[in-house]
Write a protein that binds this DNA or RNA. Structure first.
Lengths: 173, 173
DNA sequence: TCACACTTTCATTAAAAACTGAAAATACCG
DNA sequence: CGGTATTTTCAGTTTTTAATGAAAGTGTGA
């Protein structure tokens, strides 16, 4: 029934499955995390049918999640000449993956949060002493903290891996 | 029907609702995020019934999520003398919130991931050249990256807010 | 030790999220 | 064009997750 897989492929299987579970804790759909794991460890780019077969999922599911990963800039589309299928290839460089995810999470999750905090702060800027004033202060504190975090992240994001490493070593040393 | 709320309470209402939606993107249950937002902006500790009423949720729901927040060390239980109810109070200091969340996410999400990567690397350490070797390398790269990240995080976590700020300023400057 | 105030649990229900499969749309090639 | 390979969409279904509400549990003080 199931073909005999080489040892490394068994480990890969395990990696894909478990990465999928871990993904859900991070708010990432199980299948999306699995496909990402699969492609990160793929010797060659894979097409939709490869992914469907490997994970035993429907075409629609494979398609949607592949395109979502492309939307996250974690996966790119490859075309081979003389073949009209699309192939998908994941970024494998860990530093680049980190940068990409940081950028996307900043855009999708941090920036909307900051917008909210600013709205709430603006609506209460004239509050005098008392609970209203404290609320305003809390919104500002959160906003300032996130702003600062974003600034740090932007700096790190713009660094080459080597410089970031060097800088971090200084912190640790 | 609904009592007239002061302006800051309207802003707070908005904050609670939106923070809840943002939470889901982070893989945090909506209600848990809402309760956290509510307590972070509460002038006084609140009891289970206060939370139920304010968010219009059931006792079981309020209870479970309050206890989960206590489990995350983001909320602590307060008792008032002559009153056998439990009151809940959220940490409001932004730096402390950050430290707490970092610690918990490390423990719950990063460490299991590293365990997986190490298992997969160990299972393939004898792979010669070829795809098996590359898989092994990928697992190691991911592991090393996370290990390094954890080291940096541990350093930051152990810092006082002021020293962290000073250090970050140097990076930005 | 009983009554009461409060907390905790959990089987059931509801809501949200993810997945399927097939039809529709698109792109390419002769 | 017309045929075919491939991609995309989406209504319907399944699965998973979260919420309810009532019953059981706990502890306290009279």
């Amino acid at each position: 029934m199931s073909k005999e897989l080489p040892e490394w492929e068994k480990a890969r299987e395990e990696f894909v499955v478990q990465w999928g579970s871990l993904g859900t804790q991070w708010g990432i759909p199980r299948t999306m995390a699995q496909i990402h794991a699969l492609l990160m460890t793929a010797p060659e780019p894979m097409c939709t049918d490869d992914v469907m077969e490997r994970l035993e999922i429907s075409r629609g599911n494979a398609h949607t999640n592949l395109k979502d990963l492309v939307g996250w800039n974690l996966v790119r589309i490859i075309t081979k000449k003389g073949d009209r299928k699309e192939y998908f290839e994941a970024e494998k460089d860990v530093w680049k993956i980190f940068i990409t995810i940081s950028k996307e999470r900043k855009r999708r999750e941090i920036e909307p949060a900051m917008q909210l905090l600013r709205d709430c702060a603006a609506r209460t800027k004239d509050e005098g002493a008392g609970p209203g004033r404290e609320f305003h202060q809390q919104m500002q504190d959160l906003d300032e903290f996130l702003s600062f975090g974003v600034k740090v992240a932007d700096t790190v994001i713009s660094m080459k891996h080597a410089s970031a490493l060097q800088w971090a070593m200084r912190l640790l040393g």
